[in-house]
Lab assay of single mutants.
Amino acid sequence: NQASVVANQLIPISTHLTLVMMRSEVVTPVGIPAEDIPRLVSMQVNRAVPLGTTLMPDMVKGYA
């Protein structure tokens, strides 16, 4: 099972991601792979992401 990136807190819209905001967890459905966490740092979310939500490629500007 592959770990995905999950929000560690509420991430407001247009926030630049930091390591503190993300954790890796095995979830269904599978989202952005956990090994991409370093790549996600300083990218922006294009919507509010609630605590515990799996980050999907379409939620992060410039990821997909």
Rank of each mutant, 00 (worst) to 15 (best):
L17E: 00
D36V: 08
P38Q: 11
S4I: 01
R39P: 02
V45T: 10
R39I: 09
D58L: 08
A64G: 12
M43I: 04
S4T: 04
T15P: 00
I37Y: 02
E35R: 14
L19C: 07
P50T: 10
T54I: 09
D36W: 09
P57I: 05
V60R: 00
P57T: 05
N1G: 12
V27Q: 04
P12V: 05
A7Y: 01
T53E: 10
P29D: 06
T18R: 10
V26D: 09
I11K: 01
T15S: 13
T28N: 12
T18G: 04
D36M: 15
A34P: 06
A48T: 14
V5M: 02
R47H: 10
P33T: 06
L55G: 03
R47Q: 09
I37S: 03
S42H: 12
M22N: 00
R47P: 03
L51N: 14
V45E: 02
G31F: 02
P33F: 09
V5N: 02
D58T: 09
A7F: 02
V26S: 09
V27K: 08
L51G: 14
T28A: 14
P57D: 05
V6W: 03
Q44D: 03
I13T: 13
E25Y: 09
I13N: 13
S14L: 14
M43P: 00
P33G: 06
A7E: 01
R47N: 08
R39M: 09
V5L: 03
Q44M: 12
A7L: 03
N8P: 01
M43D: 04
T28S: 14
I13W: 09
V49E: 03
V45Q: 00
L51K: 12
S24V: 11
R39Q: 10
L17D: 00
Q9I: 10
L10D: 15
S14F: 15
I32L: 05
Q9P: 00
S24T: 12
Q2N: 14
Q44K: 08
N8H: 06
P57Y: 07
I37H: 02
N1K: 10
D58Y: 15
N8Y: 03
L55N: 01
Q44V: 15
T28D: 12
V6N: 02
Y63K: 03
S14A: 14
E25S: 11
I11V: 05
V30Y: 15
N46M: 13
P38A: 10
R47F: 06
G31R: 00
V45A: 05
M59Q: 04
P50D: 10
L10G: 13
V41M: 06
A48Y: 13
H16M: 13
V30I: 13
T54S: 04
V49L: 08
A7W: 03
S42C: 07
P57E: 07
P57R: 08
I32E: 02
I32W: 00
T18C: 05
S24P: 12
L10Q: 14
R39G: 11
V27I: 08
V60G: 01
V27L: 05
V20P: 10
V26T: 13
M43L: 15
I11Q: 00
D58F: 13
N8K: 09
D58N: 12
M43F: 09
Q9M: 14
P50R: 12
M43R: 09
A7I: 04
D58E: 13
K61N: 14
Q9W: 06
P12W: 04
D58K: 13
P33I: 08
L40Q: 00
E35Y: 13
N46C: 07
M43T: 04
S4C: 04
K61Q: 14
I32S: 00
I13G: 09
R39S: 10
I32Q: 00
L17W: 00
P33N: 11
T15W: 07
L10A: 15
V49I: 12
Y63L: 06
A48D: 15
V45L: 08
T53G: 11
E35W: 10
V27W: 03
A48K: 12
R23M: 05
I13R: 11
A3R: 14
N1H: 15
R47W: 06
V45W: 03
M21E: 02
E35L: 10
L40C: 03
V27S: 05
V30W: 12
K61S: 12
S4A: 02
T54Y: 03
L10S: 15
A7K: 02
V6A: 02
K61T: 15
V49C: 06
S24M: 10
Y63W: 14
T28F: 15
S42L: 09
V20N: 15
G52Q: 02
P57L: 04
L40A: 02
P29Y: 04
P50A: 12
M43A: 08
T53C: 07
E35A: 13
L17T: 00
V6L: 07
S14T: 10
M59P: 01
N1I: 14
M21T: 02
A3T: 10
S24W: 10
R23D: 06
D58H: 12
V60D: 01
Q44L: 07
T53L: 09
M22A: 00
A34T: 08
K61D: 15
M22G: 00
P38M: 09
M21H: 09
V27R: 14
P12L: 05
E25V: 10
G31N: 01
G62Y: 08
G31W: 03
P57A: 09
I11D: 00
M56P: 01
Q44T: 14
T15M: 09
P38W: 15
A64H: 14
T28G: 06
A3E: 12
I37D: 01
T53W: 11
L19A: 15
A48Q: 14
L40V: 04
P12G: 06
E25T: 06
M21V: 03
T53D: 13
D36H: 15
P12Y: 05
I37K: 05
S42W: 08
L10W: 12
S42K: 11
D58Q: 12
A64D: 15
M21Q: 04
T18A: 09
K61F: 12
L17A: 00
I37L: 14
R39L: 12
R39H: 12
S42T: 13
E35F: 12
Q2C: 09
V27N: 03
R47V: 11
D58V: 09
M21P: 01
M56S: 06
Y63C: 04
A34D: 07
M22Q: 00
L55A: 01
R23A: 06
Q9E: 10
V6Y: 02
D36Y: 13
L55Y: 01
S24R: 09
H16N: 11
P33R: 09
V5I: 09
M43S: 06
A3V: 08
V5Q: 00
N46G: 07
G52I: 03
Q9R: 10
V30L: 10
V27M: 06
T53S: 09
V60C: 01
T15H: 06
Q2S: 09
V60K: 00
V6T: 06
I32R: 00
Q2H: 12
L19E: 13
V49A: 04
A34F: 07
